[in-house]
Write a protein that binds this DNA or RNA. Structure first.
Length: 678
DNA sequence: TATAGGCATCCCACCCTATAGAT
DNA sequence: ATCTATAGGGTGGGATGCCT
């Protein structure tokens, strides 16, 4: 391993310091609201009647205010937890606050927007003013006076945490969905409103929420708590802030710190903006700020024995190797002005190492060379290994975001020429790699950003290419995977392949997308399953017939509507409130508005709308309002089936004739001959 | 109080033109 | 012969979900 500096070593040791077991308690409240009315902290007119508490030390308690006066002995007998009953609301709240005061960390799910503000506001309304000694209103959060309040909702909502720490395992940010994804537990749902339910059920429900909330911090040997502490060490931020702010804030804070230890002045954003500010190329996508990655036109066809090589951490490596940082790109030194980024007038400092560049290098090195290695070292006890794994993941979150934040105009050290320099170097090296491959007689059939698909390569030539790139550009090419065969169409970011170990790898195809109806997705996977077995070109002929049979049956079923409604549902995310769609009204928004009218509710952003294509004037309806299969528009589903399958079948020379019109389905039952040309 | 850009797809919203029917 | 309503084609771009 390369020598590391004293500074790096100190940081490394600090990161690896064991995380203390932090005593914490989860809290969840229930407010006795009438049917259909959401309790609002701004107007706390309804009483708090249940406070559930679950502590890391084993405390399990539900405090209940007997507001209906109907609690009987058997209502409060539970094996799992203890119940305390109170005859007035203030006593209930006071008791809860006294208990949680013994814990330095309070855990909630939505505590910033509901539980804590409601307790605060309700107590004040009741005249229990001492509550102010416990709960304090912050700018965008609610704090506890004696310790730390973590709102897990905000933490799990963080995009970096969601995508990089948990690989996007959950999509909806709710206690139920996250619990199912991460701890494989189902949140209990109440079968009705509080008014109609026995107290015993409500109490159990309340406890369940607090228990799940606590477990979200404890699974995998306190993974979440450790992750929070590690990110706090990387970013030099308090736990309160780490759990509420995004990755750009974590990085910003770390970079502040790097300035301080080097005695550098921290520039204001407008000072960076006064530097030379040139954009050299139009972005490919309209509305973007600068040009991004290069995607190679795929060579359509079936390709056997394809080796995929990619640049290891391309953008972080470029940041490090090419000294890119907000202050080194277009630096003030005259002598650096000849050190140009290819095809631009942007120059890069050759006198001083850039802060961000150095940061990228340190993180990349200690992640790969230290923590990743330690996390796989069999000689280290398992628990310790897993801890190193957590550190490695936290570093990955940071390194993955580093290039992105430089190109984000909300970031304190945003500098467009620096971001553009990264992507331009990326485009440059991948082009050079392809040129070299061509020269060596290696056939590149596709590539995206940092990868090259090389058909049937000679091993020695491949080695030479890797060496060439390493020597010439200081970047590491490595083999990512090998496809027994891969099927490319003319579409970029759309292909599938069967790896050498028999895994079907699907990228970007419609059949895989979450907004494809389950029925069509299933047909799609059935076809891919047939293709999985293919070893050579001759076997395609055999499976082709099976595939045609599958499609034929699927069409028949769609026409005769012999499919459960659930299988035809198209799930789409509502990303804004329904009245905020002003330019167009997409189908799912039409359906969402219908649902809002029918149920008298307001749907919130993030809600998954489940639509069915129907024969009404709108052409769509939410599944909740579709009474019978007769309303289903079979024609639309057949069109959808065809366009989904076309992506894989056109290359296999099974042509789906999409333009064909189907006037009336009954009389015009399509035969295969009409649909496929061989 | 959003880390980046590139790409495929569906379909809405709008413009234009061909056509049938009205004047 | 000219005008008008309407259907259908063409197109640009909004929205979503994906890839790296």
């Amino acid at each position: 391993m390369k020598e590391i500096s004293e500074e790096e070593r100190k940081w490394l040791e600090r990161l690896a310091e064991p995380v203390a077991e932090l005593k914490h308690i989860a809290l969840d409240i229930e407010v006795y609201n009438p049917k259909g009315v959401m309790p609002q902290p701004e107007n706390p007119e309804y009483p708090i009647f249940i406070i559930s508490l679950c502590g890391s030390d084993g405390l399990k308690k539900v405090l209940v205010y007997n507001l209906r006066g109907d609690i009987k002995e058997e209502d409060i007998e539970f094996d799992k937890f203890e119940v305390e009953v109170f005859e007035d609301e203030i006593s209930l709240i006071r008791r809860a606050l006294d208990i949680i005061r013994d814990y330095p960390i309070l855990i909630t799910f939505n505590g910033d927007s509901f539980d804590l503000p409601y307790i605060l506001a309700r107590s004040k309304r009741l005249g229990f003013m001492e509550v102010g000694d416990y709960i304090e209103r912050g700018k965008n959060e609610f704090r506890i006076s004696w310790g730390i309040h973590i709102d897990l909702y905000k933490f799990f909502k963080n995009v970096s945490i969601k995508t990089y720490a948990f690989s996007g395992a959950y999509d909806v940010i709710s206690l139920g969905s996250i619990a199912r994804a991460l701890i494989n537990k189902d949140k209990k749902e109440l079968p009705g409103y509080f008014d109609d339910l026995p107290m015993k059920d409500i109490i159990e429900y309340g406890y369940n929420d607090a228990e799940i909330t606590l477990e979200l911090t404890q699974f995998n040997d306190n993974l979440v708590m450790k992750l929070i502490v590690i990110i706090s060490r990387i970013s030099n931020m308090t736990i309160d802030d780490v759990t509420r702010l995004s990755v750009s804030n974590w990085i910003r804070n770390r970079i502040f710190y790097l300035h301080r230890i080097k005695n550098y002045l921290i520039p204001r954003p407008d000072e960076i903006r006064e530097k030379k500010w040139v954009r050299h190329f139009q972005p490919v996508t309209k509305g973007k700020k600068y040009v991004g990655a290069l995607v190679i036109d795929p060579k359509p066809g079936i390709h056997f024995n394809v080796v995929v090589v990619d640049f290891a951490s391309l953008y972080p490596s470029i940041l490090k190797e090419y000294n890119i940082s907000y202050e080194t790109v277009n630096c003030p030194h005259k002598e650096c002005m000849s050190n140009l980024v290819p095809e631009t007038t942007t120059w890069i400092c050759s006198r001083k190492k850039g802060l961000i560049s150095e940061f990228a290098g340190i993180i990349r090195d200690i992640r790969v060379n230290v923590f990743k290695r330690l996390s796989k070292d069999e000689n280290i006890p398992k628990a310790q290994r897993e801890f190193y794994g957590v550190i490695q993941r936290a570093l990955k979150v940071i390194i993955n975001a580093l290039y992105g934040v430089i190109g984000a105009d909300t970031f304190q050290f945003y500098y467009l020429p620096a971001a553009e320099a990264v992507t331009l170097y990326g485009r440059y090296v991948i082009k050079k790699a392809i040129e070299k491959a061509d020269e060596m007689g290696l056939e590149v059939i596709y590539g995206d950003t940092d990868s090259l698909f090389i058909k049937n390569p000679d091993v020695e030539k491949l080695d030479n290419l890797v060496t060439y790139i390493k020597d010439r550009y200081r970047l590491q090419l490595e083999i990512d995977k090998i496809y027994k065969y891969t099927v490319l169409s003319s579409r970029k970011k759309n292909y599938f392949g069967i790896t050498d170990n028999g895994i079907v790898d699907i990228k970007g195809l419609m059949g895989k997308k979450s907004n494809t109806p389950p029925y069509i997705r299933d047909i799609f996977y059935q076809i891919l399953d047939k293709l999985r077995t293919v070893e050579d070109i001759g076997q395609f002929k055999v499976v082709k017939n099976d595939i045609i049979k599958i499609i034929n049956e699927a069409e028949s079923k769609l026409i005769s509507k012999d499919i459960p409604l659930e299988e035809l549902v198209i799930t789409v995310t509502l990303s804004k409130k329904t009245d905020q769609y002003t330019k167009t009204t997409p189908q799912h928004v039409k359906a969402a508005r219908m649902l809002e009218r029918a149920l008298g509710i307001k749907l919130q952003p993030g809600h998954m709308i489940r639509i069915i294509k129907t024969k009404n004037s709108e052409g769509v309806a939410p599944i909740e309002l579709v009474k019978s299969l007769d309303q289903v528009d079979s024609k639309k589903y057949i069109e959808l089936l065809h366009s989904t399958l076309e992506q894989i079948l056109e290359v296999l020379e099974i042509k789906v004739n999409r333009r064909r019109k189907i006037a009336t389905i009954d009389e015009n039952r399509m035969s295969l001959d009409k649909f496929f040309k061989f």
